[in-house]
């Protein structure tokens, strides 16, 4: 079982993940229409690129935009959740050992202690994100089962990974479940709204180009996000 889920199934899920994301990127860019979107993507492109870069970077900085600043609680949840979600699996020692074994190279790693901290922080943030969904009427009205599903897809690999690494209960069981749930997440990313893994950048770049080229970027200092 272990051989299967870390062998063919792993290749398959990584394949779907990478190819799926490339397809999403290509479809997004090909579906842009200068006249319908009313943005001349290929004229005054330097202004567009400037606007796009700014639009991405300021939103990646905690409290870098007015929206982040006026919603400090959510901003903290957002960054803790996403940092834990991205940093932990990519730089985990165990993952990089596996990577070295299979592909012959590994990345910079974080200590297991840091990984535990990030995992717990990320799971705590997820818990508050759920509470927020239920407690705030403006979020509750938007929430449907799909939002909980994608949240479940992202947190289950962390819960199972944490249990496995700390040998809580049946190691083999949690390990296999961890690998499987991780693969479900990889496959789900291109097909669900988890595709914002790449579409966040494209969508932000697009609105950044819109403001950078058309909506004042060529006249003012650029939009104060």
């Amino acid at each position: 079982m272990y051989q299967f889920v870390t062998g063919p199934l792993a290749w398959l899920s990584f394949g779907i993940f990478f190819i799926g994301l490339i397809v999403r990127i290509v479809l997004y860019i090909r579906g842009l229409d200068w006249q319908a979107d009313r943005v001349t993507y290929s004229v005054n492109t330097s202004y567009g690129i400037k606007g796009a870069i700014r639009s991405i970077i300021v939103w990646l900085i905690p409290f870098g935009t007015r929206s982040w600043r006026v919603n400090p609680g959510f901003t903290i949840l957002f960054f803790v959740f996403h940092i834990g979600l991205l940093v932990t699996p990519v730089f985990l020692q165990a993952h990089n050992i596996l990577l070295k074994e299979r592909l012959g190279f590994g990345l910079f790693t974080i200590s297991d202690c840091t990984a535990d901290f990030l995992t717990i922080a990320m799971l705590t943030a997820a818990a508050f994100i759920i509470i927020r969904r239920i407690a705030l009427s403006e979020v509750r009205i938007l929430t449907d089962w799909y939002d909980y599903l994608v949240l479940a897809i992202t947190v289950i690999p962390f819960i199972t990974g944490f249990l496995a690494s700390h040998l809580i209960g049946d190691y083999q069981f949690w390990l296999i479940l961890h690998i499987l749930s991780g693969e479900v997440m990889l496959i789900a990313i291109p097909f669900t709204k988890l595709s914002h893994f790449v579409l966040f950048f494209l969508s932000r770049a697009q609105i950044g180009m819109d403001y950078g080229i058309k909506r004042g970027g060529m006249k003012g200092k650029g939009l104060a996000w």
């Binding site: 479809l27 997004y28 860019i29 090909r30 579906g31 842009l32 229409d33 319908a36 979107d37 929206s67 006026v70 919603n71 959510f74 969904r133 705030l136 403006e138 979020v139 938007l142 929430t143 449907d144 939002d147 709204k193 595709s195 914002h196 579409l199 966040f200 494209l202 969508s203 697009q206």
Partner: peptide, 23 residues
Amino acid sequence: KTLKSRLKTWLEICAHCGLCADS
């Protein structure tokens, strides 16, 4: 004919976070 990737993507990836409410 007219619903292109920008609008489609906006409709699809909205995370239902509600940050737009107070805006």
